[in-house]
Amino acid sequence: MHQFIRKVLYQDLQKNNIDKIMRLVRKLNWNDEDVAAYTIKCLTNAHNVKYYNIRCLANLLAGLVAYQEEVGTKVVDGVLEDIRLGMEINLPKYNQRRVAQVKYLGELYNYRMVESADVFKVFYSLITFGVSLDPYVTSPLDPPNHLFRVRLTCVLLETCGTYFSSGSSKKRLDYYLTFLQDYYWYKKSLWGEAFPPTLEHIFKETIMTLRPKLKMCQSYEEAQKEVENIRIALGVENIGHEAKTDEDGLDTIAE
């Protein structure tokens, strides 16, 4: 049975047969605890799907929740946990998996399985969780020479950033991009000349696609200043420079 579920989801699933696969998945015996748990696990593990088919998995899940509602929330719980655990473990061997999971989250947003607030939580956690912006304090969760979080952020921006284009979510993304540039320039200042040009290119390209008119920061100082401006504008300048500030900032932005 497990083999069947794996085959259907990981090998057969493609853009043109989502309906067919959906019918098969609906036919599974969801009352059987083991089958249900295993299927949910498979629906969560997007890294087992070909990268360009991750969207199909999100599409499938979005259709499935009409019939099996709790599967949706359990899969989302699982994906968020995986992204978080990836940050805590921070081992290169999971990098591919982490890219896939972040991509999946973005697609889940596109299929309206999660709300923009959930996506922003992940956006901010990527640049704050276990992050030390003090060159003398090295955090094991995000050591100065690690650039993987920048890449993950770009993947997520690329996947669903275009939908944050109006109203409060547009504003939220604008604020976020400032914080992100601050993080980026901090990393860049530590790397100096050695900073990989490919990543620089990906980073600029991602932001420019979303906000073609944005004047990007050209130095760490400039990025810091921009962040300070936001803090002042939002009246949160007195709060510490920890992760909490960003969350508080986020709440204010939501107003």
Partner: peptide, 19 residues
């Protein structure tokens, strides 16, 4: 706190998927 606060709605009747 769970990052995702949503929980499945409770229905009085369990809906059966007609498949």
């Amino acid at each position: 706190f769970a990052a995702f606060q949503k929980i499945p709605k409770k229905r009085n009747k369990v809906r059966v998927d007609p498949k």
